[in-house]
Design a binder for these strands. Structure first.
Lengths: 246, 246
DNA sequence: CAGTGGTCTAGACCACTTC
DNA sequence: AAGTGGTCTAGACCACTGG
């Protein structure tokens, strides 16, 4: 059994979480089996019950464990463990499916922006919008056409580093420049591909697909990115695992 | 200032949560303003700091508050407060949009079920499937065509109460019969309406829309419901607010 | 420096489950 | 009755923020 290091700068509850996660992921703790009780964890890891409970509570929130009063604490179904209802990155979704994400950057420019774009980004008169046009790929096969808008000059550093978008993740780039998406609002509707999109995605004109619009906000509620994208129906299906509240 | 009742069977941390929620919802605590500090809450409500922290931590998880180390605890943006990335009920979504949900029950029958249905519901040879065919409405306007399958005889009580589906919420009915959805797996893709669907939804044949398939599982991982539904693109757009992890 | 939240302890009593 | 998780207390020290 691993031990927790009090010299480690990482908090004890966090170390305990990692130990338990590791045992779950490795299969040492199988789904629907009980993990050691709270008093047992207290004595084996030499920490207080509050510390144990903080570790367990967070793992419950993350969908790895569930508690049954009077019975014990159990490992969730693998399906529940994968529940990542709080993530929205296409790049990571592609990786989860075992494919290699990419993003061919077609256009990178500074523009005034349409009424919609200016409104979504809450631009004032003197401000412009950065516009990226991308063809997103999985294993080099085009799966989506995407146009991103960011506020300028606020996101000027992103504009400088635009070439890094070839790995596909705009959010990673934004995070590394201190533009941290905190919440993302998405709208999904069915629509017909445009002529230009059909050419880029190598599909027939008139084909149906999913059209997303998405706005990302930081902690203060300021919009930091707006995007429109099209996914051909035959190339990609949007997959969600949701946990029911309470 | 409201006080917490120690005679109240509800836990103190829960009562404190409700008080704070109330103050946020009523606008007494505006977005991006700091709530009283933890020591202040300890003295005003005469509870320990651990109790205060339990209340605040849960409100943080629920998207009502955020903490900044060294600065304080603040009220989230209204947009974040509405983040309910863990819910999947169309009925509640319609209500959130200020409309009246309804569900016209077209068919209610016991069948053997297709290969897909039997597999999704993990039916054994002797078991059947309950099949409901519904036209879901908002303010009496059809917005989706839905077919639900439940395992029989496990969900026999639901079959008896099928007529109650007119209020629209199958999940409510399931919960009241001890069939509690714990996680739901959804797949969304763009598709063309079928002839029969077009008639029921009063739209043109060939129109594009969103096709959902969804499977609900209980805590033990057993499938308890499977459904297929079609939303015409022009009638409904699927709206999600997501919080970014970490 | 004072004030904030972050981590941690060593207890206590209660409610629920199982035997 | 014994074991489980649920709630609660009264402390303590630390890390981060601001004047």
């Amino acid at each position: 059994m691993p031990t927790l290091e009090r010299t480690n700068p990482l908090p004890l509850y966090y170390q305990l979480k990692e130990v338990l996660k590791q045992q779950i992921r490795s299969g040492h703790l199988a789904p629907h089996t009980a993990i050691p009780s709270e008093p047992e964890l207290v004595t084996s890891y030499h920490v207080s019950r509050a510390t144990v409970r903080q570790a367990l509570s967070e793992l419950v929130h993350e969908g790895l464990l569930y508690r049954l009063h009077g019975k014990g604490t159990f490992v969730c179904e693998p399906r529940v463990q994968q529940t990542q209802s709080e993530l929205t990155s296409l790049t990571e979704d592609i990786q989860r499916r075992g494919k290699r994400p990419g993003g061919l950057l077609l256009v990178s420019e500074l523009i005034r922006g349409s009424e919609t774009v200016r409104k979504q980004l809450a631009l004032i008169d003197s401000e412009q919008a950065i516009r990226f046009e991308r063809l997103r790929t999985a294993d080099d096969i085009p799966i989506a056409y995407e146009v991103d808008y960011l506020p300028y000059p606020r996101a000027a550093s992103i504009y400088q580093r635009a070439k890094e978008l070839s790995d596909g993740s705009l959010y990673n780039l934004m995070n590394s420049e201190g533009l941290n998406p905190y919440i993302v609002e998405q709208k999904i509707r069915a629509d017909i591909v445009t002529v230009r999109e059909a050419e880029l995605l190598r599909i027939s004109p008139g084909e149906a697909g999913l059209r997303f619009t998405s706005t990302a906000f930081d902690l203060t509620g300021s919009p930091i990115e707006y995007s429109e994208s099209f996914f051909p129906g035959s190339q990609y299906d949007f997959h969600v695992m949701l946990r029911v509240a309470n």
